Simulated assay, not measured.
Amino acid sequence: MSETRYLESGAKWTALLYGPFFAVFGYLAELATGATHAVAWVLVGLGLAAITAPWVYARRRFLTVRVTGTELWEGRESLPLAEIAETQDVGAPTGARVLGGGWSTPRKYDELPIRLKDGTVVLAWAKDVHALRAAIEGA
């Protein structure tokens, strides 16, 4: 596998800690008032971590953007860099295919139109399209 030149993960696994931290603060607040329910707070922390895990897994699987020395990965779809003709001043025609398999660019992501060597235009997406463009052109 070639080195990663650009990486934007969809979510970080540290998000699993939000639920247990909330439970610890809830327990400490209860401790300050007198009556505590330690078992309930442990269950709340574990429950919140359990429902956060599929969310993090899905975001990492479908919203990760990576550029290696040979490929551009958008979610689960890869595009060989050898197929890319240009990334500068490419207009996005209506109905251009979005990389990654979605109908449109994911929310909170900017789009980067890319012209392929066969003349078609596809839409790549990232939170920082300038860094993505630089990584594609640098590779």
Results as ranks from 00 to 15, higher is better:
L31D: 03
R66N: 01
E71P: 01
G45R: 05
F62Y: 11
R76V: 15
G75W: 01
A49D: 09
A35F: 07
R60N: 12
Y57K: 10
E86D: 07
V44Y: 05
A49N: 12
A38I: 14
L72S: 04
L63K: 01
T87G: 05
Y57I: 09
A32G: 10
A53D: 05
E30V: 01
E86G: 03
L28Y: 00
R66C: 11
R59V: 06
G69M: 04
G69H: 09
L81A: 05
Q88P: 00
A92K: 02
L72R: 04
V44K: 07
Q88V: 10
R61W: 00
T70L: 10
T64V: 10
L43N: 05
Y57L: 14
P54Y: 06
Q88L: 07
L48W: 10
G45Y: 07
A58V: 12
L43R: 08
R59Q: 14
E74W: 02
L48G: 15
E86F: 01
A40Y: 08
R60P: 03
L31F: 11
D89P: 00
R76A: 15
Y57N: 09
L46I: 14
G47S: 14
G91L: 11
L43C: 12
H37I: 00
A32I: 10
E30M: 14
A49C: 13
A49G: 11
F62L: 11
T52Q: 15
G69V: 07
L28D: 00
V56T: 12
V65P: 01
L72M: 06
L46Q: 06
R60V: 09
A32F: 03
G47V: 03
E77D: 12
V90P: 02
V44D: 05
A32P: 02
L72Q: 03
R61N: 08
P80I: 11
A40P: 07
R66G: 00
L63Y: 03
A92E: 08
D89S: 09
R66W: 00
E86T: 08
E77Q: 15
L63P: 00
A53N: 03
P80M: 06
W41I: 09
A35I: 05
T68Y: 01
P80W: 07
W41M: 14
T70H: 13
Y27K: 00
A35T: 10
R76F: 06
A53C: 14
S78V: 13
A53R: 06
S78N: 08
V42P: 00
L63F: 04
V42I: 15
V42Y: 03
L31E: 05
Y57A: 15
W41T: 05
G45D: 09
A58N: 10
H37D: 14
T68I: 11
V56P: 07
R60F: 02
A53L: 15
A50K: 12
A29M: 10
L43I: 11
L81S: 04
Q88N: 04
A29L: 13
W41L: 07
L81N: 03
A53T: 13
A50E: 15
G91S: 12
V44R: 07
V39I: 14
G47A: 14
V39F: 11
R66P: 01
A50W: 08
I84Y: 00
T52I: 11
F62T: 08
L72I: 11
Q88R: 13
L81D: 09
H37A: 13
W73L: 13
Y27W: 14
Q88S: 06
L63I: 07
A38F: 15
A58C: 06
V42W: 04
E71Y: 06
